[in-house]
Simulated scan of single mutants.
Amino acid sequence: MSTGAPAAGPDRRPTAVLAVVVVAGTALLLWGAEWLARTGAESVLARTVQERTGVLEAPPVDVGDGPVLLQALRGRYDDVTVDLEVVSSGPVRLRDLSADLGGVYLAFPDLLDGTTSGVYVERSAEQALLTHDDLDRYLRFTGRPLDAEPAGDGQLRLTGSVDVGGAVRPVSALVGVAAEDGALLLEPTRLDTPDPLEGVEELLVRQRFTVPVPLDPLLFEGRGVDVATRPDGLAVGASGEGVVLGS
């Protein structure tokens, strides 16, 4: 009968350490792949927006808070937001443009290449502001030296001088604002002048105060546009389905 110490069991510490290392390494790889997928998608989409709008710097783009790696592998991103401080096209300038995009298709090979010719978007919703100063700038570009200010009840007041039959007449007009054919349409609802306008004179003045404002700076060219007056300008909203960014 042996009286010696019992034999020691197998040491499991190396196995446990190896398991921890494997788990930590896998987590680190997944984190790195997730970071690369998010960064790559945001970079490609930002450049696409930059090319579409012509802004000097790529804008902030966020592909959402959820896991991105699986979205990148399948080539479809659930939620994407884009923010632009100022965007312009010709004489029209919009500020504080933000776009919420749903179902953004960016193929995985395009993500790896870092380039794309167009990004298909299932749903888009944009908001932007046309300030009174920027509206005045556009009016002057079209040969209408008028100043805009809020007038309540969803209207603006435009004030300035108008050439009527060779005579310059001071005119103030209440103007309604509506969305029409992907643009904003300003139409006078009331004219105020020191001397009454009649016949052809009134018709000419109404024509001068009827102004279409194109919304080309919008990312998706103003599909489904609505507009609301604000103390600082006109709040423009646009929505669309099945649109392409960067085409």
Rank of each mutant, 00 (worst) to 15 (best):
T3V: 06
T3W: 14
G4A: 15
A5N: 09
A5V: 12
P6L: 11
A7T: 12
A7I: 14
A8M: 09
G9E: 07
D11K: 02
R12C: 03
T15P: 00
A19P: 10
A19N: 10
V20A: 15
A27P: 13
L28G: 13
L28Y: 13
L29S: 12
W31E: 15
G32N: 07
A33D: 12
A33Y: 10
E34V: 07
L36H: 12
G40D: 06
G40E: 09
A41Y: 07
E42A: 12
S43C: 02
S43T: 14
L45Y: 08
R47G: 11
R47F: 10
T53A: 03
G54E: 04
V61E: 02
D65L: 13
G66D: 14
V68M: 14
V68N: 05
Q71V: 05
A72T: 11
L73D: 09
R76Q: 14
Y77A: 05
D78Y: 09
T81Q: 14
V82G: 00
V82Q: 01
V82M: 05
D83A: 12
L84Q: 02
E85V: 00
V86I: 08
V87F: 02
S88P: 01
S89W: 01
G90R: 02
P91N: 09
R93P: 00
L94T: 02
R95M: 00
D96N: 08
S98F: 06
S98I: 08
S98E: 14
A99L: 09
L106G: 05
L106H: 05
T116L: 03
S117V: 09
S117M: 10
G118V: 09
V119T: 10
Y120R: 13
E122F: 06
R123D: 12
S124Y: 03
S124H: 04
A125N: 13
Q127F: 08
T131E: 01
D133E: 12
D133F: 02
D136Q: 07
D136S: 00
R137Y: 08
Y138K: 01
R140T: 09
G143E: 10
G143C: 08
G143A: 07
A148H: 00
P150W: 06
A151C: 08
D153S: 08
L156V: 09
R157H: 02
S161C: 11
S161M: 15
D163R: 12
D163M: 10
G166P: 10
V168M: 03
R169A: 08
V171Y: 04
V171D: 08
A173I: 07
L174M: 15
L174I: 05
V175R: 02
G176W: 01
V177M: 03
A179W: 02
E180Q: 13
A183M: 11
A183F: 10
T193I: 06
P194M: 10
P194I: 04
D195Y: 11
P196D: 15
V200C: 08
L204D: 11
V205S: 04
T210Q: 14
L215W: 00
D216K: 05
D216P: 01
P217C: 00
P217T: 00
E221L: 09
A228W: 04
R230H: 06
G233T: 01
A235H: 07
V236H: 00
A238K: 05
E241I: 03
G242W: 02
V244G: 11
G246Q: 04
G246L: 11
